[in-house]
Amino acid sequence: MDLLLLSNSTQHGHGYLEHAMAAVTAFLPPAARLAFVPYALADHDTYTARVRGALEPAGITVRGVHEGPDPVRELASCDAVFVGGGNSFRLLSALYRTGLRDAIGTAVRAGTPYLSASAGTNMAAPTLRTTNDMPIVQPPSFDALGLVPFQINPHYLDPDPHSTHKGETREERLTEFLEENDVPVLGLREGSWLRVTGDHAQVDGERPARLFTRTRPPRELPTGTDVSHLLATAPRFDTPAR
C-alpha cells in the first residue's frame, strides 16, 4: 500500500495543504486524477472547491466523489484518493452509507495511493476509538478502513503546564484507551505525517510524533524515525489491562 497520512490540512500561517504541498505532490502520480471524499464536512461542494483550488495549480485534477451519481464509480475512475478532515463520525457513517468503506479499502490494498488528513487519517486505523471528535452521528460500527494495524491520533496536543483547565489531557485520554485496548497509538502533532510505502513506515513533517503503548511510557519519535515495526502490530481491542 501507498499511504500519506497527514495530521492536519490547515497549518497556522499557511494556506490549505501548503505546509505539506511538497510531500503531497511528490506522493501523487504526475497529472493525477484525484478522487476527493468530502463527507467529513456538511458542505461537500465548497469543500471540494477548496481542495481543487489548492491542488489543480500543481497539475492535479480533483473530482469530488459526490459529483456523480455513484461515488464508488467516481473512485474507480481516479488514480488516487484523498479523504479529507472534519468530523470523523460523520465521515465514517457516510463511507458505510455510500459503499466507499469497502471500495476504498479494496482499491488501496490493490495499489491506489491514499492521501488523508485529520478525520481521513483516523479512517486509516482499525477503529474510530482514538478520534478527538464529538459523535454527532452514529455510524453502523466504529470499524474504519484498517489500512494500518495500529491507531493514530491526529492533532495530538501536548499538555500545557501553565493551563488551569482541569479536564483530561490528550495523553490521559490515550492512556485510558490503552487500559481497555492493547494496540499502539501514534500521536501526530500539527505539521507531521506518516508515510507508508509497502512494508516501510516513517514519521515525517515539521514536528516529532509521540508513540503510546500499554507496556511502556510514551516515546518521542523525531522526524525521519522508521516505525515499520508498527505494521506488524496484532491489535487487541476490548482487552482490559490486568
Rank of each mutant, 00 (worst) to 15 (best):
A94G: 06
L186C: 01
A94E: 15
G105D: 13
H155G: 00
A103W: 13
I104T: 14
T106H: 13
T61Y: 05
A125H: 03
D204K: 00
P159Q: 06
D133F: 07
K166E: 13
P208E: 02
T48Y: 13
P240C: 04
A209H: 03
V24R: 04
L41P: 01
G146I: 04
P29C: 04
D199M: 05
S163F: 05
A241H: 11
A110T: 07
G53R: 08
A20N: 08
R129E: 14
L6Y: 15
D199G: 07
P222G: 05
L17V: 11
V148W: 02
V227W: 07
N87S: 07
V24C: 05
E176Q: 10
A201C: 09
V83W: 13
D143S: 06
S88T: 15
Y156F: 03
P149Y: 00
Q138H: 11
R195D: 10
V62F: 05
R214C: 03
L211D: 02
A144L: 03
T239N: 10
Q151W: 00
N87G: 05
P126S: 08
A117S: 13
G59S: 11
L95F: 14
V108Q: 10
T10P: 00
R216L: 04
L6T: 14
E206H: 10
S9A: 15
R210M: 01
D79I: 05
A54V: 09
L91C: 08
G86M: 09
T48A: 12
T10D: 12
T130Y: 01
D143P: 00
R210T: 01
D102G: 08
S163H: 07
H66S: 10
G224Y: 12
L157K: 11
L157W: 11
N153R: 03
S88A: 11
T98Q: 13
P57N: 10
A58D: 11
V137G: 01
T164A: 07
D238E: 14
M134S: 05
L221D: 07
D160N: 12
L17W: 13
T215E: 14
V83C: 02
T48L: 06
A144R: 02
E74A: 12
T25I: 14
T25M: 06
V203W: 12
G187N: 01
E206I: 02
R242I: 01
S88W: 08
R52D: 09
A22Q: 15
D133W: 09
V83D: 08
V65Q: 14
T239Y: 14
E176F: 00
T25F: 04
E18Y: 09
G111Y: 05
A117Y: 06
R109G: 02
S141P: 00
H162V: 03
G68C: 06
R236S: 08
P208N: 02
R210A: 00
E171T: 08
R63I: 15
E67V: 05
G146T: 06
P29A: 07
P139S: 02
F177R: 00
P140K: 04
R73Y: 08
H44L: 10
L100F: 10
S88K: 06
D133V: 02
I136F: 09
L17Q: 07
T215Q: 10
L145Q: 02
G191K: 08
G224V: 04
R101V: 07
L194E: 06
K166A: 10
L157R: 15
F237V: 03
T197V: 15
L4P: 04
N122W: 01
T215L: 04
F27P: 02
D158H: 03
P139L: 01
S93G: 09
C78Q: 09
Q138V: 11
P69Y: 09
